Simulated scan of single mutants.
Amino acid sequence: MAELSEAQQREFEAAAFRRLLEHLRERSDVQNIDMMNLAGFCRNCLSNWYRDAAAGAGVELSKEASREIVYGMPYAEWQAKYQRDASDAQKTAFEASRPKDH
């Protein structure tokens, strides 16, 4: 395995994160509840982690601002365009597998 400098590691992690965001923006058909049910995290989790990282660096970032960074648009706009009502099966699966902090 190649030895990476700390700077390279950060650069590659940032590039991978940007690619993840791009992918999630392209896949607006994938609902957050589906992501939660399958992987235990969703776009909102990513926005919370982003805001936590900013706070750790002493940067105040609102929930709305961090969501806009992740969604690529204001959250309310994304909801209006892409979010569908969760089915009973999706809700049941979520309740069975939801992380304790959600």
Rank of each mutant, 00 (worst) to 15 (best):
A14T: 02
R84S: 10
W78Q: 02
E26P: 00
I33E: 02
A89I: 09
R18L: 07
Y50K: 04
A16E: 05
V30T: 11
T92Y: 12
E95F: 12
A89P: 06
A86H: 10
D85T: 13
L46N: 02
A65P: 02
E95G: 01
A2L: 15
D34H: 11
Q8F: 04
G40C: 01
T92C: 08
M35N: 03
L38E: 14
A89E: 15
R27V: 04
E22Q: 12
E77A: 07
K91R: 15
I33Y: 04
F94A: 03
T92D: 15
L61E: 12
R98E: 14
N32M: 06
M36K: 13
S66Q: 06
S47F: 01
L24N: 01
A96R: 14
A39R: 11
L61I: 14
Q90V: 02
Q9D: 07
F12R: 09
S87D: 07
M73V: 07
Q9S: 07
V30Q: 09
V30W: 10
A89L: 13
K63V: 13
G56A: 11
Q31R: 08
N48Q: 13
L21Q: 04
K63P: 00
M73G: 00
A86S: 15
A16K: 00
R84N: 12
K81F: 02
D101V: 15
A96V: 07
E13I: 05
A86G: 07
Q79H: 09
A14Y: 00
F94S: 06
G56N: 13
G72R: 02
I69M: 10
A14W: 01
R67P: 01
A93R: 12
D34I: 06
S97F: 05
Y50P: 00
E77G: 00
Q31F: 08
R19V: 00
S66N: 04
E13G: 00
M36Y: 05
M1N: 14
S47L: 02
R43T: 01
Y75R: 11
H23K: 10
L24G: 02
A76K: 12
H102Q: 14
F94N: 02
S62H: 09
A54D: 08
N32V: 04
H23G: 02
G72H: 01
F41D: 03
E95I: 09
A86V: 08
F41Y: 13
Y50R: 05
L38S: 09
D101T: 15
R51E: 09
D52F: 11
